[in-house]
Design a protein around this nucleic acid. Structure first.
Length: 931
DNA sequence: GTACTCACG
DNA sequence: GACGTACGTGAGTACG
């Protein structure tokens, strides 16, 4: 029966499948000969999934995969720049192209291509024919160029989002119906295909115009009527270019075909042909799945040799918790250790009783050696006791002794030839360190993602799994519960623990397979290998060392603060004439602005009064109350955040505070310190500064603080290449005084401190992406005056303006900015419109400077352990431009010399800065003295 | 959970 | 012409 009513044609955009497969998978190769087959593997998986998903009641009666063929088409004759901006096809993809055709035929799906025609035109022609014959059509593609075909029984299916696109979908995308899509595209152009369109007109404006004038021809004829002068002129000037653009985007429904719709009838795959092909490609898992599906026997496949790592499994293996093994005895563990030796790598994850590594006890270890192949080794799970709400303290059955397991694993974990892969390896490294195991070498999926994707998204396992594996990990919450009833992992039943823990290792391994090749593609391999990965053992050691904090000092201060606060509170209530919660900005606002009627208050987005310090400072001239509140707030902050909270963080076993640094916390490359944050211990106010007296050196030792002097300004001077600034640094001048001297024509000798202060504010402002508003607020001067300063500054240092413009232009082009060491910081909002834009611009200006400084100190830290290995000195803390050490009194001078040398030369040899980096040193019995 | 406030570089 | 603005963090408290 000829194709007609009741028939349903599926047209698959083959190129789209290929490119998705290519980019989604790591560059896999065929084991036997190294032929690149990653895209073919992904293509086959997608095709197989498509076939499996389409055998229901709405199954297609006809189907074909359509490919492009030849690079020159009639569109190139119309416009020689058509698709001229396309990158060359990647080297390792080219040889896979014929294989995708072969794969399609092997699946017994019609495979069509015509020399000199784009797939889109063949699809258009077939869709028109099928529609005219009264049948239905589904185009499987997300290419917006094909949207013009939708309607009259033709729909699209975006396989990636699994979303059907009908007429309404097209209208949502283009703002017009399918029949006017080409008109909109002709106006808007298309940067992907290099279709010029009308400059300055995008989809939104194009749809607006087409809807107003009906169609493109009418619009062009009546262009003179358009009100907006710029738009009118654009359309008049570029009418011809727009008409050509329309021809470029208009699909051709009259492609000469050498086959008919009836040739595309759906056929069952032939088992032998298909399995032969898959076997030839050496797709083990897919071959197995296809064999199962077709009821055929699994063909014999060449086994990977035992003495070399197996090929990365190319196929997408489904997640299946039932497949994970619980390892309960030595024999089972030995089997896994053998597998690890065969592979040369293993993904590993530890389960413990606490997120705080210093207090955590090991509960179990999970391992994964290939996608879908993972195990969990329970080691300290507690038995569930009947009738006892709190469970038993006895160990559960079916676990091997922890000592024995660690004894067996230690040689593997410390084996130079075996790569240990983890997600946030610093955590696991610290756990293992507490059991005397120095895990190395390592890879860390969190850091691999950070190196290539900083600024785009977070790098936690949940996010990465969703994003790169389309898989939602088993949540931990249901296992542990929350709040008071929460249990620790050792109380989780072993079977549930296995499903959860082994999956984590499995996910980690798959993430590594997907993400690791991306380092090279993004050209950040060096960043990862010199700035991220080596930091893991360094920070692990620093965190485990911790810093001694004197509880009595904190406790005494806390009591003193309490008393002062009580006095202030009474005064405040007296002044207010009523009692209220001084700590509530909402209540305070009501007292100040509603009751007392003071001016100058602003409300936040919740409608409550906002009472930040700067507002209270202004009000303090009017009334006594705001000043008291400011004093109270300072004490409250110091007490709650520092003197009280810090005591909670003193580890009872070590008597020290062990912060945790997140390597991937800040987008710019800075570290972030948590639990507690030791990077924001007070220093600016005299009262707060005394908190630092509680950070002390152990007996017989001294604290050393070494910090970079003006590192960000030096880096700015280098990057922006400002001769005057560079010279000032070379001469060892006071940089703020020099700036003031240049700007205000005053001599450096005997300079008014106010002038210098203003110059200093400007220097900082420059680093932050200065604005008149921001500077005005900071210096508390009128906005116009601040703007005058900025103008004068740029006049005097034109290179700074050039640097800013260049940086923003670079960010707009690339969607990222870079540090001197190649670290990429993505700026996804840089091309956004509206209030985000200014924000993104300033962040883009700041990121290379802040990031380069962060890179420098990272390099210093990574070199430090070796540099001070023979000294009785330990590195304790990092505070962005400062490193804190604890050292025997006798070795103070040696340590200072050694550390200074490492820090001042940290940029070299990778980068030779044109300004010197200088480091100041201080020492004392506590941090207040040392700083 | 979000908003506000404030500590640091 | 109006709007909203210094960059990067973490944490404690109030409040719905």
């Amino acid at each position: 029966m000829a194709f007609g009513k009741g028939h349903h044609l599926h047209l698959i955009d083959g190129s789209a499948f290929i490119f998705r497969a290519y980019h989604a998978l790591p560059p896999l190769t065929r084991k036997s000969d190294g032929l690149p087959v990653g895209a073919v593997a992904g293509f086959c998986n997608m095709l197989f999934k498509y076939i499996e998903d389409n055998n229901g009641p709405d199954a297609p009666t006809h189907a074909a995969v359509i490919f492009d063929k030849g690079s020159h088409t009639f569109r190139n004759d119309l416009y020689d720049l058509y698709k001229a901006n396309r990158d060359e096809m990647p080297e390792d993809l080219r040889p896979q192209m014929p294989l995708t055709r072969e794969a399609t035929r092997a699946f017994n799906v019609a495979c069509e291509e015509i020399e000199g025609f784009e797939a889109d035109d063949i699809i258009a022609t077939l869709a028109c024919q099928a529609r005219d014959a009264g049948g239905r059509v589904t185009i499987i593609s997300s290419d917006k160029d094909l949207m013009q075909l939708v309607g009259g029984g033709v729909e699209m299916l975006d396989a990636m989002k699994n979303a059907r696109i009908d007429v309404e979908g097209v209208e949502a995308k283009f703002g017009v119906g399918p029949e006017r899509v080409v008109d909109v595209q002709a106006l808007a152009g298309d940067s992907v295909d290099n279709v010029p369109g009308a400059p300055g007109i995008g989809i939104k404006t194009a749809a607006l115009l087409i809807n107003e004038y009906g169609d493109l021809e009418t619009l062009l004829e009546r262009a003179g009527e358009i009100k907006q002068p710029k738009r009118r002129q654009t359309l008049i000037d570029h009418a011809e270019q727009i008409r050509i653009s329309k021809q470029l985007v208009q699909l051709d429904c009259n492609t000469p075909l050498e086959f008919t719709l009836d040739d595309l009838e759906v056929r069952e795959p032939e088992a032998e042909t298909l399995l032969d092909f898959l076997t030839k490609m050496e797709f083990r898992t897919l071959t197995k799945r296809v064999a199962d599906r077709l009821g055929a026997e699994m063909p014999v496949m060449p086994e990977p040799k035992a003495d070399e790592p197996a090929a990365v499994v190319a196929e997408v293996v489904p997640f299946d918790p039932d497949k994970y093994e619980t390892v309960a005895d030595e024999a089972a563990l030995q089997k896994w250790i053998d597998l690890i030796h065969e592979r040369g790598w293993v993904a590993i994850d530890t389960e413990t009783t606490s997120l705080n590594e210093m207090r955590a006890d090991l509960v179990g270890i999970s391992l994964a050696v290939e996608a879908g192949s993972a195990c969990y080794i329970p080691l300290a799970h507690k038995a569930a006791a009947t009738g006892d709400l709190f469970g038993s303290d006895d160990l559960a059955d079916g676990q091997m002794p922890m000592d024995r397991a660690l004894e067996m694993l230690k040689p593997v974990l410390e084996d130079d030839a075996i790569l240990k892969i983890g997600q946030n390896m610093k955590y696991d490294a610290k756990i293992f360190a507490s059991y005397g195991i120095a895990i190395a070498p390592i890879d860390d999926t969190l850091l691999i993602s950070y190196a290539q994707n900083a600024g785009l998204h977070n790098h936690g396992m949940d996010v990465l799994s969703e994003r790169y594996l389309s898989h939602t990990p088993i949540p931990i919450k249901p296992l542990l519960g929350s709040g008071k009833s929460a249990i620790t992992f050792d109380r989780v039943p072993v079977d549930k623990a296995t499903a959860y823990a082994a999956e984590d290792a499995d996910i980690t391994l798959r993430l590594w397979q997907v993400l690791k090749p991306g380092l090279h593609k993004a050209k950040v391999t060096t960043v990862y290998e010199t700035l991220e990965r080596p930091l893991v053992p360094v920070l692990a050691q620093m965190e485990r060392t911790g810093i001694k904090v004197d509880r009595d000092t904190l406790s005494r201060m806390s009591n003193a603060f309490s008393q002062k606060m009580a006095g202030l509170e009474a005064e405040i209530h007296e002044l207010a004439g009523e009692k209220f919660n001084v700590g509530s900005p909402k209540q305070l606002g009501e007292i100040l602005f509603d009751k007392m009627g003071l001016e100058g208050g602003k409300k936040g987005k919740t409608g409550a009064w906002s009472t930040p310090a700067n507002v209270l400072e202004d009000l303090a001239t009017e009334h006594d109350l705001p000043g008291r509140v400011l004093d109270w707030r300072q004490l409250s902050k110091l007490k709650s955040t520092y003197t009280d909270a810090l005591q909670e963080h003193i580890n009872p076993e070590t008597g020290r505070v062990h912060t945790s640094y997140s390597i991937a916390g800040a987008n710019t490359g800075r570290l972030a310190s948590t639990d507690p944050n030791l990077q924001n211990i007070p220093v600016r106010s005299e009262e707060g500064r005394r908190i630092r007296e509680a950070f002390v050196a152990d007996e017989g030792k001294v604290l050393l603080s070494l910090d970079y002097s003006q590192i960000e300004l030096r880096i700015l001077a280098h990057i922006a290449d400002i001769d005057a600034l560079k010279q000032a640094f070379l001469d060892g001048q006071d940089i703020h005084a020099m700036t003031a001297s240049e700007m205000f024509n005053v001599p450096i000798e005997g300079m008014d401190p106010m002038i210098r202060r203003q110059a200093k504010a400007i220097n900082f402002g420059v680093i932050y992406g200065i604005s008149g508003f921001g500077l005005a607020r900071n210096l508390r001067i009128p906005r116009g005056e601040a703007q005058g300063f900025i103008d004068r500054y740029f006049e005097r240092f034109p290179g700074i303006r050039a640097y800013m413009d260049d940086t923003i232009a670079f960010a707009k082009d690339h969607d990222f900015v870079q540090t001197l060491f190649g670290r990429k910081i993505h700026t996804p909002e840089i091309n956004a419109k509206g209030p985000h834009a200014g924000f993104a611009r300033r962040a883009a200006i700041n990121a290379p400077i802040q990031g380069t400084a962060a890179d420098v100190i990272r390099r210093a830290m990574i070199r430090m352990p070796e540099a001070i290995a023979d000294l009785p000195a330990k590195m304790l803390l990092q505070v962005h431009d400062e490193l804190l050490f604890e050292v025997d009194e006798a070795a103070v001078d040696d340590t200072i010399a050694r550390v200074k040398d490492v820090m001042e030369n940290a940029a070299m040899p990778a980068v030779e800065l044109s300004v010197p980096l200088t480091v100041d040193a201080g020492q004392g019995a506590n941090w207040a003295e040392a700083h």
